[in-house]
Design a protein around this nucleic acid. Sequence first.
DNA 1: CGCGTAAATGGCGTATGCAAAAAAGACAAA
DNA 2: TTTGTCTTTTTTGCATACGCCATTTACGCG
Lengths: 254, 254
Amino acid sequence: MRATKARLVISKASKGTFELNQDAARVTTIVPTRQATRSDELRDHLEEMILDGRLAPGERLDEMELSRRFGLSRTPVREAIKSLLAIGLIETRGRQGTHVALLSIPAIIEMFDVMASLEGLCAKLAARRATPSERAAMRAVHEDLVKAYEGGDPVAFYKVNQQFHDLLYEAAHTHFIAEQAIQLRRRIGAYRLRATYQPGRMLGTLTEHVRIMDAIDAGDPDAAQKAASDHVQLLGDQLTDFISSLPPRMSGAQ
Amino acid sequence: MRATKARLVISKASKGTFELNQDAARVTTIVPTRQATRSDELRDHLEEMILDGRLAPGERLDEMELSRRFGLSRTPVREAIKSLLAIGLIETRGRQGTHVALLSIPAIIEMFDVMASLEGLCAKLAARRATPSERAAMRAVHEDLVKAYEGGDPVAFYKVNQQFHDLLYEAAHTHFIAEQAIQLRRRIGAYRLRATYQPGRMLGTLTEHVRIMDAIDAGDPDAAQKAASDHVQLLGDQLTDFISSLPPRMSGAQ
DNA sequence: CGCGTAAATGGCGTATGCAAAAAAGACAAA
DNA sequence: TTTGTCTTTTTTGCATACGCCATTTACGCG
C-alpha cells in the first residue's frame, strides 16, 4: 500500500495548519501546530466514536480491523490505541484485545465529583479574572442556549452548553485546570449526553447558568464556585439516578 | 538485533504475574494482569527519570538515542512516548522532537489547586466511609511521620508522608479520584519534594494531618474536606513562594 | 559582505514482516 | 459427560526498511 492509494481523510481538518495568535494589534505570532499525523487523526476519530456512542462501552477495538477500515497499517493504529489507553478511555484485557472502557456507576459518580470541583475552581477564578468581553460572550452563548431550549433540540442544546463551559474555562484564564476538565468531560461525555434528555434538565441548566454568570458578574468567587459546582453535581445526580434505573444490560456500565 | 541480545531489565518486575483478588472467603477471581511489554517498561522508566530529575524539564527525548540506550527498536520507544504525551508529561514542539514538559509557575499553582480539591474530596469521603482499621492505620503511619520528623530526615519524611496520603485515598474507598490524585502527584512530585525542605513545613504537615484525622474520626465530612484541602494548599503556597524566589534559571519552570 | 535559494542531512511517520504468546478448538481418555 | 492435553489460529509485540518533511548548511548572486 503506497501513498498513491486513496487516503481516508478521517476527521476535521482543523489541524495541520497554522494558528494565528493575535495578541495585540501589532504582534502576530505564528504558532506552528504540528500537522496531524494519521495516528493523531485516528485517535481523535476513535475518541469521537466512543463519545457519541458509535463505539459502545465494552466494545472491542481490533487492530487489524481498524487498519483495514481506515486504510492504514497497524503502526499508527497501535499508537492511537496507546494514547487512548493512557487517558483511560480504553483498556486492555489480557490478550483479548483492547476494549472501550466500562465505567462502573461508582466511578461515574466520582467523575462527576471531580468535574464539579474543577468547574467550581474555574468559576471561582473566572469571578476574579473574567474580562468584560468574556462575560459578554457567556451571556451571548447563554442566549443561544435559551434558543436551543425553546427550539426543543437536545443535541443543539448539548453542543451550545459545551460552548458555554468552554467559555467559562477561558474566562478563568487557566491552562491546566481547563485541560483537565475537558479531558474529563470527554471521558464522561457519552453519559453526559444522555443526561440532557432528562426531563427538566435543560431548564435546570439554564437557571443554574444564570446563577453562575450572576456570581461571576458580581465578582463573588465563592458564590461562583458553589454555583458551578452545584450545577455539575445536579447533572451528575440526575444522570446516575437515570442510569441506576435502567436494567444493567442497557446501562452501558458494569 | 535479535532477541538473543542482552535485554535491559528496566524496572521493577512487579508485573507479568497474576493478581489474586480474594473478595469473600469463597470467591477468588483471578485477574490476569498483562505482562509488561518493553514499551510499558520504558514508559515507566522514563516517567521515573522525569520525576526524579534525571530528565530535566525541557530536555529532549530522541527516539533513536533511546533505542540505542535501552537496546530496543524505535517502535516500543515511540509507543512509550505516545503514552507519556497523552498524560502530558512530555510534549512535542513542532518537528523538533519531543521534550520533557516545561511547567510554568501558574500551571504549578493550578496543579496544587486541583490537588487540593482531590485531597479534599478524598477526606470528605473518608470521613464517611473509613473503617476503624483504616483510621488506626492512618494514626500509625502518622506516628512514623512524627518519628521521621524527630529524626530530621526529609527524604524519609517525604516517603512516609506519601504513605499517609495513600492511606487517605484508601480510606475514601474511591477508585477514580485516588487514581487522579496519584497521577497528579506524580506530575508535581519533583516540585513537591523540594517543598519538604521548606522551614516549618514538616511541622506544619504534622499538625495539619492531625486536623484531618480528627475530622475524619469525628465523622465530619466538611471539616475533613477543608482540612485536607487547606493542607495541600498550604504546601502549594509555600512551594510556589519558594520557586518564585529562585532565579529563573534554577527554577526548572519557564 | 549579506541574502536568497538549493542541496544535503537528520529525524519522524508509516508500512511490513516475523516471532512469540495466549486463546480457542479438537481429540482422546477417564 | 467431563476433563486434560495438544494443535491450530489469532493477535499482539518488536524489528527493520523506506519515504517524506523540515531544518540546516553551503554556494552563488546581488
